[in-house]
Every structure is written in C-alpha cells, then in structure tokens.
Simulated assay, not measured.
Amino acid sequence: MNPIEHFEHVFEYNELMGVETLHPLVSVIDLSQARMIRRYRHTFGFYALFLKDVKCGNMIYGRQYYDYQEGTIVSIAPGQVAGVEDNGELFQPKGWALVFHPDLIRGTSLGRNMRNYSFFSYEANEALHLSEQEREIVIDCLHKIRTETEHAVDKHTQRLITANIELLLDYCVRFYERQFITRGCVNSDVLIRFERLLDDYFASEKPRTEGLPSVKYCAGQLHLSANYFGDLIKKETGRTAQEHIQSKLIGLAKERIFDARKSVSEVAYELGFKYPQHFSRLFKKATGLTPKEYRKPD
C-alpha cells in the first residue's frame, strides 16, 4: 500500500493539482482542469469536499475501500485518511473539490455551526449520492465560492465565502435527509439489527466484562460510522441512539428489579454499570422512582 502524504495548507494541495492559489485558506478546483496525478493516500489539515463526475476506482477512506461512483460527494475532516488506490498509473480526476482551512471559519457563523455537519465524519460508503438537480445546486454554490476567491480581498470577502460554504453544507444536510428517506428499507434493516444487537448484548456476559454498550460500539458492529448511525436513528425514530440504548436498559432493569434474589447493586452490575449509584440515578430520572421504591410492593 502506498504511503500517506499530509497536506497541512491549502496552497500545498493547489500545487499538487497544478492550480493557482487565489486565497490562502480556501480553494475551489475544477478537477478536469487540474494536472494528472498519481493515486495515493493522504491526510489534510483542512476540510475537503469532493464531488466526483466519473467513476475513479477504489477509493481508500480510513482502512476501508469504497467503489467511488459518479455523482457522489465525500466530505473529509482534518486528519482523516483518504485517497485512491495506487495502480502505478497517472489519471485525470473529474469533478470538483472544495478545500477550506479551519482558520477561515474561526469566529464566523460557519465556525460556530460546523459541528452540525456531522457528515464530515461519515465513512466513504456513507457518501451522499446526488440527483442531477442536486448536483446542479452544488456546482452553483461552488461557482459562487470560486467567484469570491477570484475577487480582490476586501472587508466582505470572508463573510461572503463562509456564507456560501455554509449554504452548500446546508444543502448537503437537506440532500442527506432525502437520502435517508429514499433508503427507508435499508434504514429499517439497520433499526432491526440495532434492536437485535442490544438484545444479544444484554443476554451475554458483555455488560459485566465490557460495561454499557456505547453508540460508537453499536455503530461499529453495524458497520457504520458513529455520526451516520446517530443521524439515521434520529431521522427514523425521532430519538437519539443513546436514548434507544437507555430505553432498552430501563426496560430490562424494570424486569430484573423484581427478582428478589438480586440486590439493586447486582442488577446494576449485570446491566453493565460500574457504579450502582449511576444506575439508580438514571432509573429515577426515567421512572420517577428509585429502584428500591419501584421494587417495593404497594
């Protein structure tokens, strides 16, 4: 496997692609106008969003391979590993790239809202697949951003660039929500497997040995990123994945609390709690009663 190359600054990526740096913190690149490059893996010190117009082979994202089809967007946060499998040949990329450094958005509305764009932490197999109309909207936003980078820097530059990036990312949120809906059958399967995973987990010795199941653990078992999994569950059910886990916990606790052979502490330990008082606190928050009050007969 080819080595990982790191690009800390936007101008370094521009140099690789053979394009002029118009702004030190942001760049919009028409990849069809860029130079031919080798396939390789890389990390960035900045955010990157790629819209591909052609199939370009197996993309490497983290430790996984993804057959990167046309009409998809992959969003990459600083520090993530991405790239294309090296076959020893040069290739001409097609599509668009938007890269912007965290320094560009500091103190802006985009900077304050960046955590809302959880798709920057999705896996490549959770890429956004666009309709033709959606693709045109994305490209229009990219053109607006690039137009601002070509304009002489003035007091309006940062605000207009970041506002247009924020608009683009808001469209991506909308398009992902559409994708969640159009993939309803797949999502239902995830929900079923999530419930089965929790049932199997609590029926095993894992709560005693490994503790409470986390959202990250459940996502990993379902071969999804934690952010994508959380967004999918929230969109499908209106509740967070953590709320689902806690609901399962409370349901099991209500059943086991009535086993007079077990103390409240024993129930807490077998459910995965390290400290019984944490179990009691969560139980009372959910039911309005402590475990002992719930167990006590009327």
Score class of each variant (00 low, 15 high):
205 E>M: 10
58 N>G: 08
132 E>C: 10
234 K>Q: 15
204 S>Q: 10
286 A>T: 05
17 M>S: 02
106 R>T: 12
231 D>F: 08
237 T>L: 14
234 K>N: 10
246 Q>C: 06
233 I>L: 15
5 E>A: 09
180 F>I: 04
239 R>K: 14
34 A>P: 00
161 I>M: 05
113 N>P: 02
221 Q>F: 06
106 R>A: 15
206 K>R: 15
87 N>M: 05
288 G>R: 08
244 H>S: 10
94 K>P: 01
52 K>W: 06
295 R>A: 15
20 E>C: 03
56 C>G: 06
67 D>S: 12
133 Q>E: 15
74 V>A: 15
267 V>W: 03
133 Q>W: 09
285 K>W: 05
242 Q>K: 12
64 Q>T: 12
186 V>H: 13
62 G>V: 11
42 H>W: 15
126 E>F: 08
161 I>F: 00
242 Q>D: 07
222 L>C: 06
21 T>A: 02
159 R>T: 11
159 R>V: 04
136 E>I: 12
201 Y>V: 10
170 D>C: 10
90 L>F: 11
75 S>P: 05
173 V>G: 03
43 T>L: 13
81 V>L: 14
248 K>V: 07
37 I>D: 09
233 I>V: 15
4 I>E: 02
166 E>P: 02
124 A>T: 06
159 R>N: 12
162 T>V: 13
123 E>V: 00
70 E>Y: 15
200 D>Q: 12
222 L>W: 09
277 Q>I: 08
85 E>Q: 10
124 A>H: 07
34 A>G: 07
253 A>Y: 03
10 V>A: 02
298 D>M: 10
79 G>Q: 15
278 H>F: 07
143 H>N: 13
162 T>K: 00
135 R>N: 05
235 K>D: 09
280 S>Y: 05
75 S>R: 01
78 P>V: 07
32 S>I: 07
87 N>H: 10
165 I>L: 00
155 K>V: 13
120 F>E: 00
202 F>P: 05
186 V>E: 13
4 I>G: 06
35 R>E: 06
259 D>S: 06
164 N>K: 14
293 E>V: 03
64 Q>P: 00
282 L>W: 01
244 H>W: 12
111 G>E: 02
83 G>S: 11
82 A>I: 08
278 H>C: 04
141 C>Y: 02
62 G>W: 12
112 R>F: 07
117 Y>C: 09
58 N>Y: 11
195 E>V: 06
124 A>N: 03
287 T>F: 11
44 F>C: 12
250 I>E: 01
260 A>C: 09
212 L>R: 08
190 V>G: 09
221 Q>L: 05
178 R>A: 09
101 H>V: 10
57 G>I: 07
288 G>H: 01
153 V>S: 02
206 K>N: 06
168 L>G: 02
270 E>K: 11
187 N>A: 15
8 E>A: 11
139 I>H: 01
163 A>R: 12
231 D>G: 04
